[in-house]
Each structure stands twice: as C-alpha cells, then as structure tokens.
C-alpha cells in the first residue's frame, strides 16, 4: 500500500500488463513512469528511481479485520461481484494456481520487512512455531513480530508500538526483490 503523493506531487496509477521479477507493474498518468508494485520504485520514465512512500496496511481475513475495526467501511464495486479470494493449504511444492485464482497456498506465505540496509522474511510456517509477539533485532533496529494464524495475517511494530510498513507475500516474490534477505527460522530448542 502506497501513498500516491511524493512531496507535493500527486500521482494516479493504472495497471500495466508487464512484469519485473514476476511482479506486476503500475503506470502513473501524470508522467507515464512505470513503477514496480512490490518494490514501490519507478523503473522507467521521468520518475526513474523514485520510491513511493509505503504506508502500513494489513492483509487479513475479513473476520479478523472486522473484529478489530467494526466501524470499517468496505470497498464495493456496483454491478461487480468479483471472486472471493481465499487461502487454503495445498501440498508444499505444488504449482501456484493459474489466474484467475480463487485460492492461494499458505505454505509459502510470510511477512517481509526491510530497512534501508537489511531485509528479513518470516514464513508463516515458522511463525506458527514461534512465541508471539516475537522480538527480533534487525541490525540495530528491534522490532516485534505479530502473527494470527486464524486471521492469516502478520504485522510488525517498532519499540514505540507503531505499526511499521511490511508486506505479506510469497517467499519467492520477496526473495526476487530482496535476494540478500534473511529468512527467519525458529530455533527448535526454544
């Protein structure tokens, strides 16, 4: 989730069919620059290299979100039902469902968090075994990792308890953009 404003300049994004690192692209109407969706940076055009400000957001089940935010509004598209998107487990290693998918595999799902210098990925399969919330120090930065199995969600907070920008994504997608990323493994002795 990005802010569409860089300093005083506002952008309007459209969807583009091409990919970078197997991840979709978006194009702004104002300059025609092409941006990576997962990276949030312009890969071509007048805004080349510019990063969009990331804002904390949470992907979760509807039940989880509504429990915490019963006053939430919900995006609707009149005349369009769409297809409900669910996660369900399949065998690890099985191919991803072809689009249009109505389910995704949780086996490779996790939470990616990056600072300017370092990146870390927390597989849900490891968070399942971890004490939650879990304090982790990335470089000099301590963070707390939160996870809710039923809500199919995880998030990161800083020492001041502010929610920090992080991404729920597949392990392979995260590593495509952060090849040096640490992948968290729960210590079985803990």
């Amino acid at each position: 989730m990005y802010a569409r404003r860089i300093e005083d300049r506002e952008f309007t994004f459209d969807f583009a069919e091409g990919l970078i690192n197997d991840n979709l692209l978006i194009v702004d109407r104002e300059t025609g620059s092409v941006w990576s969706q997962l990276d949030g940076k312009a890969i071509s055009g007048p805004m080349l290299g510019a990063p969009l400000p990331v804002i904390p957001a949470m992907q979760s089940t509807w039940k989880f979100w509504q429990t915490f935010y019963p006053e939430t509004r919900v995006m609707v598209v009149e005349g369009e039902e769409g297809s409900p998107y669910l996660y369900r487990n399949r065998k690890p290693g099985a191919p991803r469902p072809a689009k249009p998918a109505t389910s995704h595999d949780t086996s490779f799902l996790g939470l990616g968090f990056a600072t300017q210098d370092q990146a870390i990925f927390f597989p849900f399969s490891e968070l399942d075994k971890s004490p939650i919330p879990m304090r982790v120090t990335l470089g000099e930065q301590p963070i707390d990792v939160h996870y809710d199995k039923e809500g199919l969600t995880a998030w990161v907070t800083g020492p001041d308890r502010k929610v920090l920008p992080a991404v729920l994504t597949y392990r392979s997608g995260w590593l495509d953009f952060h090849p040096q990323s640490i992948v968290y493994v729960e210590d079985p002795r803990r």
Binding site: S60, T61, W62, K63, Q66, R73, V74, L86
Partner: peptide, 14 residues
Amino acid sequence: AHEVRLADNELVLG
C-alpha cells in the same frame, strides 16, 4: 460493514 456480504475467511487489505 453491515451492508456487505463477505465470508469470514475472505481476504481483505485494510
């Protein structure tokens, strides 16, 4: 929220 019908396990981005 009360005006929409979503399954409990349907995914949303909030």
